[in-house]
Design a protein around this nucleic acid. Structure first.
Lengths: 116, 116
DNA sequence: CGGTATCCTGCTGGATACTG
DNA sequence: CAGTATCCAGCAGGATACCG
């Protein structure tokens, strides 16, 4: 029993480590939602800078979470694509979106109660 | 469609914000797993310091994620308990544990392939 | 379009010691 | 047991400018 708990904590920490930071998950989500060009991804994520996007994309490419290719149809154009591995985050992301959505509703209705 | 995407990104970022940092999720997980005393929680999370635990507990209490009470059965003893709200993280945590576990297996089997 | 290069700030979190 | 207090480093991440 205690063994399992330690493993759970470690698994959690592993996930936090890999998905760590403000931008990783939003980037994955953006690409999985059909954004493939650099500027396109950038525009889809409010607040991100080119610097952070560039950096994170590079790291995630190294970690086999996504793939950078040159678009054969458009000369000199770059495409970012999710790998199969990337899709394994699907359920995690889905649950986080669900939670965030519910949370926002809760906060808003709380403000109403307090008359703000 | 594009509207939904923005909302998704925002929901994701909200969740990341609330669960942010290295320790929040492991702490929630620990308490939900039956640890209620300060030292108990501390021991269950490898690497955490008293300082970080203390700080995070305080913040999470403010945010209604957990509750601090004095144990009526044991004088001067403190109990940390999860609130109902805290349980809403359940699915998120479960998915993250699942992912982390699978990831670790993957990394290990990859190392074997590479003969490391 | 698809990025780099610099420069800089602040916060996260580690180490350690101490308290009632 | 249940924390506080201090001090400090590193790096995540912001702002801005520039490049082929």
């Amino acid at each position: 029993m205690l063994r399992d708990q330690k493993k759970e904590v470690q698994a959690l920490q592993d996930t936090i480590y890999v998905l760590g930071g403000k931008w990783r998950l939003p980037i994955i989500n953006s690409i999985c939602n059909g954004n493939h060009r650099f500027r396109e991804i950038e525009r889809s994520i409010p607040g991100i800078t080119t610097r952070m996007l560039s950096r994170e994309l590079k790291l995630m490419e190294i970690n086999d979470i996504l793939r950078r290719t040159l678009d054969p149809d458009a000369p000199g154009q770059v495409r970012y694509e999710s790998t199969e591995y990337c899709f394994s985050f699907g359920p995690v992301i889905a649950e986080m979106i669900r939670w965030g959505t519910a949370h926002r509703k809760r906060v808003i209705s709380q403000r109403k109660k307090e008359g703000i």
